[in-house]
């Protein structure tokens, strides 16, 4: 039983503001080994829309999505029940983790509301790279590898550290406060409503056409950056800065070091540079470390106080002095 009715999503290029969120998504595309991004933010800040629009822009399809209503048979995979019942034949049905592996990305909306046993399945597959499917006579072991993109509202609780660590980057999203941006949001939303109504009536929706054109342009830029990534050098000072920052912020484990370096490399690529400088490292440091810091308590709140930005600025100055 598979039905896919394609909804119309707001084009990525029409999303107002949220530059950090967009940057994080673009970095994970340019350098897939970053491993995805956790987007944590207030209500109504367009987190889910951004992820879906981004996927639509680059792949012309929605991401493989693990909803909070998923049962374990759909996560892991099994047999197609409709075939089983109507034709008494066994037809394998790949689970969401396997589908995500094929596409390279698994999107989890409201990731902090996922049931514990589903989280365990994801963790097992993500950490071992293997998905054992043992159900009703099926005994398969599938190699899986995918980036995780999750969106969550921190009002409803936080994530287990093991799952947090599986996200390469993390970005906090807040509501835009400037009058101009709020006004732009209203204009965009009302114009999009109007475009949908026109589309339903069989009319041409200029807004959608224009948005898709801009999306195509951005998608080709990102594809070009992705193919150029390996040509961008990470010189020793930049690599050492990554390590120093991770140490300074007491990052748990070493994944923060190399995710930071990789993200900085992707950022440098997007900026058209040939090698990573301290500026790109500092720009992505928070994204790479915020969810990997030892908080020292049980709150799991993944906070990033303003003082941390001051510390980063100081480290940036020091690195320039050293150079």
């Amino acid at each position: 039983m598979t039905t896919q009715i394609a909804p119309t999503i707001l084009p990525y290029s029409l999303i107002v503001g949220q530059e950090k969120l967009k940057l994080a998504l673009e970095l994970t595309y340019v350098a897939p080994r970053i491993g995805g991004v956790l987007i944590s933010g207030q209500r109504g800040t367009g987190k889910s829309t951004a992820v879906r629009s981004f996927s639509r822009m680059l792949h012309n399809s929605l991401p493989v999505t693990l909803p909070i209503n998923a049962t374990d048979d759909r996560v892991v995979g099994g047999w197609r029940i409709d075939e089983l019942m109507s034709n008494s034949t066994l037809v394998p049905q790949p689970g969401l983790l396997q589908q995500a592996s094929d596409k390279g990305l698994l999107y989890i909306d409201e990731v902090n509301l996922l049931e514990d046993h589903i989280v365990n399945l994801i963790l097992d597959a993500a950490s071992s790279g293997q998905l054992p499917v043992e159900r009703e006579g099926m005994d398969n072991k599938v190699e899986v590898s995918f980036a995780l993109v999750g969106t969550m509202n921190p009002e409803e609780g936080y994530l287990r550290h093991q799952l947090l660590d599986r996200f390469g980057l993390m970005v906090d999203v807040t509501a835009l406060t400037s009058l101009e941006q709020r006004r732009q949001i209203l204009e965009t939303v009302l114009a999009f409503d109007d475009a949908l109504a026109r589309q339903d009536a069989g009319e041409q929706a200029e807004l959608l056409r224009k948005g898709r054109l801009e999306d195509e342009q951005r998608a080709s830029e990102l594809r070009a950056a992705r193919s150029r990534l390996h040509t961008v050098r990470v010189p020793d000072p930049a690599a050492e800065l990554c390590v120093r920052i991770a140490d300074r912020f007491r990052a748990v484990g070493h994944r923060g070091d190399y995710v930071m370096a990789l993200a900085a490399r992707a950022y440098a690529t997007l900026e058209g540079r040939t090698e990573v400088t301290a500026g790109q490292v500092i720009a992505v440091a928070r994204m790479a470390l915020q969810h990997r810091r030892a908080s020292g308590d049980d709150s799991d709140q993944m906070l990033w106080p303003d003082e941390n930005d001051t510390v980063l600025a100081e480290m940036f100055s020091e690195s320039k002095d050293d150079a």
């Binding site: 039983m1 039905t3 896919q4 909804p7 879906r52 209503n69 759909r74 049905q93």
Partner: peptide, 16 residues
Amino acid sequence: ASVAHLERHGASLRWP
């Protein structure tokens, strides 16, 4: 939401 997903008991559905 712009899209709804249902992934339960073998069903894999997506709709606005």
